[in-house]
Amino acid sequence: MNYTEKQNAIIEDFSLFDDWMEKYELIIDLGKEIEMIPNQDKRDEQLIEGCQSRVWLKSNYKDGKMFYFADSDAIITKGIISLLIKVMNGEEPKTIAKEDLFFIKEIGLQEHLSPTRANGLVEMVKRMKLDAIKNY
């Protein structure tokens, strides 16, 4: 699947639920699946301090593609990170830097990426893109 197809697949998964609580149950389950950075491997430079929750992000560039590892102290934040990673992992830096991340808005999670939410996610997406640009 390409970048757009991956995003469309997530939108489809979420369209199965009408109820907000069910959507969040899915996000929480995704949060539990995420490939985390073990505590002993966490570095200060990976930390993105939000007002509410904190996020750690590690980016790897391998064979022309980007791979991300991340963690958060809040499970909902973690679930959203896991969605972002699903879409962005294994993509070329150029795609990540240039293509639109439209699924967040489509599934109604844009509030988590608004600056007022203060959960570190806005900064994280920015950093994911910047790390991609470095290898572009």
């Binding site: 609580m21 969040y24 929480i28 007002c51 509410q52 929750s53 102290d73 809040a74 499970i75 909902i76």
Partner: peptide, 22 residues
């Protein structure tokens, strides 16, 4: 051990406005 942010988010989805954080 649940993060207050997670509780606050789910309460909001159920129509309850609380404050979370420091």
């Amino acid at each position: 051990d649940i993060h207050p942010f997670d509780i606050g988010t789910l309460l909001d989805k159920q129509g309850v406005a609380v404050r979370t954080g420091h």
